[in-house]
Design a protein around this nucleic acid. Structure first.
Lengths: 218, 218
DNA sequence: ACGAGGCACCTGTGATCACAGTTTGACAGG
DNA sequence: CCTGTCAAACTGTGATCACAGGTGCCTCGT
């Protein structure tokens, strides 16, 4: 049997990084919801490894505020207050706005086509009430844009914020009964990017980033 | 003997957090310089503890890019390229600009007085070529402003960026022979804040954040 | 004298064990 | 039936040991 058929990213990486990435991906798309509790030994058993790598991954996620870790108590997915969520989306707006503005001149025609595909994926996921697929396509849409800003550190920070707001957004989407509220702002974003209008792109992205606050705003 | 005379923040916290904070403080003020190497067991011996807490702290710092951690090789303080440094200062500019704008209406007269004191401390440290004291006062100056923006998550992110740019700034300051280049822009910032001019404060802070790029720019 | 190979020491990573505080559920008493 | 209490099982944290890979110096051969 050839090895090529197996997943390959494992060997050069560390076990700790494996579970870290796994948790991060789950938070990003809302496969973990606010209040969910996570145990070191349970996760270790699921992954078939010792508790050591898992504990490191959880501690790191707690440090970057993707999880809460009280002393001697189980790690949990943070249940943000509206104020905390608003703060996060405020940061996302300024950070993603700047990234979009810087990325505008560097988007290729191929990129724009990919963005349109992501938009369509989001549309069908939204009407299916499939929060996970929706958030996944949404993240890939934004990540592609920001990656063209040629600033890796900035991309990391934005990704972190997506991870932290993921569970909140998933909770918000799942709490809706009517999927009517969705308006295809993303097409406007793609149009602005295509025209090379950096200022407009920035404004639209800022608006889109703040959209997540529309849930539960009291 | 009374316990009140001892440092108190220790007991409720974890050993791992202790060495984490210690390293972070050292990076922030440039007591660790780019290229410096850090060993788990050495640090553990210095702190009189097992290697376990130290490894967690180092891994966390590596994760937030405050240290580099190649596989099976010693952790080191990153020696940033000019491009990477420029990226970081670009992020600082947009993030700190936004924070300053939001904080402007909430600064008290007492805050402004403290800011002026920090400015004076920076001045004397600069003329003494004391990079550590300079960076410490500089950080406290900025941190006080941003703390008034009432956005803890934003404050965390900015602090992280200070930690990451600390060694670079220290290297830059120490490489200068003449301390002539220092211009007291901070007084202008305080003046703008005192007048409640949010837009001007933002612009001045952005300018100040980009100042760190003036070293070694090729 | 110079270069290449090898071995000893260094590094981080993972496993296993011991410990202390927290949570939870069951059982006894009102 | 409700409530207060206690014990067992859970939680994360820290220590110690074993392992594999990387680095560099020292020696042996030419």
């Amino acid at each position: 049997m050839h090895n090529h058929s197996e997943k390959f990213p494992d060997p050069p990486r560390t076990l700790s990084a494996t579970v870290y990435d796994d948790l991060r991906a789950r938070l990003l798309v809302g496969r973990l919801l606010p209040g969910d509790t996570i145990s070191i030994r349970t996760l270790a058993a699921e992954h078939g490894m010792s508790a050591m790598p898992v504990r490191e991954a959880l501690k790191q996620l707690a440090l970057e505020r993707a999880l809460t870790g009280a002393l001697k108590r189980a790690y949990r997915v943070p249940d943000l207050t509206c104020g905390e969520a608003a703060n996060l989306f405020q940061i996302r707006a300024v950070l993603e706005g700047g990234a979009a503005e810087a990325a505008t001149p560097h988007l290729s025609a191929r990129d724009l086509e990919t963005l349109r595909r992501r938009t369509r994926q989001m549309d069908v996921a939204w009407h299916k009430q499939d929060a996970i697929r929706f958030l996944e396509a949404n993240f890939r849409f934004h990540a592609l844009i920001y990656s063209r800003a040629r600033n890796d550190a900035l991309l990391d920070l934005i990704e972190n914020l997506f991870v932290r707001t993921g569970p909140w957004l998933a909770k918000g989407i799942l709490s809706l009964d009517k999927p009517e509220d969705w308006l295809g702002e993303h097409e406007a974003i793609v149009a602005a990017l295509e025209r090379g209008d950096a200022a407009l792109s920035r404004r639209l992205i800022e608006e889109d980033a703040r959209w997540g606050m529309s849930f539960f705003q009291s």
